[in-house]
Design a protein around this nucleic acid. Sequence first.
DNA 1: TTGTATGCGTTATCAC
DNA 2: GTGATAACGCATACAA
Lengths: 346, 346
Amino acid sequence: MSDAPEPRLVRATAEMVAERANVSRVAVSRAFNPGASLRADKRELILKIARELNYFPDRAARTLVSGRSHLIGVIVPDVCSYWESQEIDRLTTALQDEGFATLLFKTRTDYSMDEQLLAYMRGYNPDSVIAFVENVKPQTLTRFLDRAVPIYIDYPHPGETPLAEPGPVFDRLNILQRDGIEQAIALLQGYGVKRIAYLSGKTKSRANTARESMLCTIMAERGLEPPIRMVGDFGYEEAFQSTIDLFKVFGGAEAIFAANDVSAFGALDALRHELGLRVPEDVSVVGFDDIAQAHWKSYNLTTVKFDLEARVRALVRLILRRLNEPDAPSLEETLTTRLVVRGTVG
Amino acid sequence: MSDAPEPRLVRATAEMVAERANVSRVAVSRAFNPGASLRADKRELILKIARELNYFPDRAARTLVSGRSHLIGVIVPDVCSYWESQEIDRLTTALQDEGFATLLFKTRTDYSMDEQLLAYMRGYNPDSVIAFVENVKPQTLTRFLDRAVPIYIDYPHPGETPLAEPGPVFDRLNILQRDGIEQAIALLQGYGVKRIAYLSGKTKSRANTARESMLCTIMAERGLEPPIRMVGDFGYEEAFQSTIDLFKVFGGAEAIFAANDVSAFGALDALRHELGLRVPEDVSVVGFDDIAQAHWKSYNLTTVKFDLEARVRALVRLILRRLNEPDAPSLEETLTTRLVVRGTVG
DNA sequence: TTGTATGCGTTATCAC
DNA sequence: GTGATAACGCATACAA
């Protein structure tokens, strides 16, 4: 019986596996590359010995020679923002299943995608980069990426000129916001609501501007006055204060359409706990995103939903297609939105 | 004027920089390694040319030869769990400032830290690994890591034998839960509360068992009956249901001590919206973590706080110390907790 | 199907 | 302080 601490495992190399299996180093390499041709029994033997020796091909060496890092860069301004954390969660799982890992980078909170960060990130050789920060120009990304093609999340608005053509190639995930927003407005109209306020997100964010302009378009189409504009930044606190201002200073509204769910929560809490108003009897509230808290009993929020799983699948599809055809022209995927009706409109 | 799309940047290598600067390849390498000796003006020239050529040392090559990947593996069961997303957020920022990047891995939701994941992760050569999954044995981690030394988050309980000595070296972040829990119980007692329920987290989680046993110890010390045990899993839904059961089937309680804030929210919503009880007039509620939502008006939760910033600093300190002395014996950092008093006890 | 030779871009080791 | 040379661990082209 030995009570000496088990020694740290030495790093097994392909060479050591080859020796034990009586094959060449190259055979080991092939055993780990499903595409390579190798006799089945030989591959099996090699993999068995590899397991025994706790051998796993070194990604760094592999990256160096193949130009593929199997790293997907994900740039976010705020991981704890619930919507983003959900997306990161699902995305990481999906990528892991495909043999990739998520490499996380944080931008400063002022949403400035500084060049220092990009240069820094680039050193890791990500195979692809997804920027959740929706107001960074894809050109900026492209400048710093040599192999990788960035994925840009856009909210196209019919009539607007599409961004940045011609120019460097980048792939695109289009989110069509019309359906969900239109359904929400129709529902509000169905309950006789006329005076609607838009609780804004960060003003420079493309998600926000796209959301607002689509809202205005649809309200005009349906014969409504333009929405009252409330300042906001996608956060709870600002929404809370802004809602109080709306009712104490600016005459209130019959409904608040928030730029995201978290803002909607802030508005709800201000209405109920600070202004003594009832939701939905006195004021209706609609959110955007359908994050998990939206169905908690305290909120039970009616909200415009992105299908997260579909979104992640689309992202993964874009990544895989681009990896297969590095020189293909711009790829696109398109998703829609829809309204989830709960208890804050009525 | 040329309207041809700007060509994709070619990848600059150290060699190209060296050529332009009339120095050797090695000098370029030295220019990027602050420790290396190089004439100041020479270094400056090299860095200037590097910027012009958009050159940045390739991490893969660097990793291969230096054995340092500048990648920190972070393993989580659930990114969207709010506490964890906050920690990932802060940690990523802190690591970025030190020249590291966060490599994210997800375990399956059953908390099983399967060997497949570890082998997979190991291939990326992380310089360090932080496992937030608190019930994975550090030995398991160590088995798959050759260079990296894992960091294990523990909740030591006086009287318990410390885990896993002797054995492979791993570093440790100790969270002392006593202070915060004791303050919470004292506060409840101050309001005359006697019948207390513990809303459990995932039963196998070390965070949960440590929390529960500490709670029992302190309640016994202070002359209270052992807490009523409610099933839970750190989640909202389960807490909601469990609270209803407590009052409809098991006779209720004067206070609920939840294993984390999200459970506490579930309990609060059940009490107020399903059972028609008032908080804190009829029932008091205490949480654990102090996540951002805890001070939202709908909840305004009294909760036991971890200092997140301190925790992240401690983790980064552990990582840097270990990197400086790879063969040092086990390192430790210790943190405490305290009660944040808001509106759910009284 | 298999093995040999070569190269990926960098840092470490040694000279000078 | 500086430069030549040798690794680092693997995948690929090519020849067998």
